[in-house]
Design a protein around this nucleic acid. Structure first.
Lengths: 167, 167
DNA sequence: CCGATTGTTCAATTTAGTTTGAACTCTCTG
DNA sequence: CAGAGAGTTCAAACTAAATTGAACAATCGG
């Protein structure tokens, strides 16, 4: 590296660092790994699309990490690929519409959990009905009902959320 | 332990395990540690309040873990303390109203991040205005605006969320 | 106020999750 | 169709986060 003519193109400037750090914090709240925040943040401050190798070099992360991070971001609908014309490689750009980002996150991270939650509650309801002691059975029945209510509320909220964030 | 008359009172039955496992999964989605899901889940299936020692023994976790978990749950408004009458120790019961749970989570986990996010964006806006190159400065200004929009949307959504989940 | 009991704190350990990097596949092009 | 470049995969290494447990503080009753 020391013998390359221009190290600058591999380094982020302070403002870019600031943005990347912000997104790193941001995605941690969402339970996503740091590298995802770094990649998205870098794309977010970049005026042009970046290739996988650009990302690897500017962030100083491994190719593997960048590749996996981009896959997750693609699945969330948070980056789109633009094929680089004459060039062989793919370039990546960030999706910056909140609607799209929230939609992807709900679809990929929230809905699956709501689904599996419902299944588990159904199984729980079955177990609860098999309890011998009537008092205990009644109590459990009430708790199961409470859980079903939570799920219903959750299901009702998501569409509203999406509508509100669609601007 | 082997010489205690009734080991049963320290063990969860299969249904209790099922509920605890469900809440462990549940809280992981929210980015909270496993022990918190275990404790809340155990309280949720229990017909009576439980003491810290009850929790330690039935879940088989350490006193330290239970103590810290309860503290977090209290700060989230997800458990309340009931002092156990003649007894010296405190008993814990779960809060089961969704409104309360969501409210606590928003207050403790979401709002602080929104706040600090706003601060970071303000600082970023300052840095962006100092950029020399006009084209770059314009681009960054637009991105900062975008971030400000995201934050505004987030702020608008929370109250609606709370209202909808209040039943 | 002493000793017993309840609950807290935090450094050390353990566990879970992320990142790396080398080997691999795929695809294009000369 | 050989070889070069782009991107993927995944076991191993590393890092971050949770848990333990022992020492400590607080409180109560005798």
């Amino acid at each position: 590296m020391a013998d390359l003519p221009n190290g600058d193109q591999y380094e982020m400037d302070p403002l870019e660092r600031q943005v990347v750090a912000m997104f790193v914090d941001g995605v941690r709240v969402l339970g996503l790994p740091r590298s995802i925040g770094e990649i998205y943040g870098l794309l977010f401050v970049s005026q042009t699309g970046l290739s996988l190798d650009d990302i690897v070099q500017r962030l100083g992360i491994s190719k593997g990490s960048a590749s996996q991070g981009l896959r997750t971001l693609k699945s969330l609908g948070a980056v789109r690929e633009t094929d680089g014309g004459p060039d062989r490689r793919t370039y990546y750009e960030p999706a910056i519409e909140l609607k799209r980002l929230v939609g992807g996150f709900i679809r990929e991270q929230i809905r699956p959990h709501l689904e599996s939650g419902k299944t588990k509650i159904d199984r729980l309801a079955v177990s609860a009905r098999e309890i011998e002691d009537p008092e205990r059975r009644k109590f459990l029945g009430e708790r199961v009902e409470r859980l079903e209510n939570w799920m219903r509320s959750g299901g009702r909220v998501l569409p509203v959320l999406q509508k509100l964030l669609g601007q």
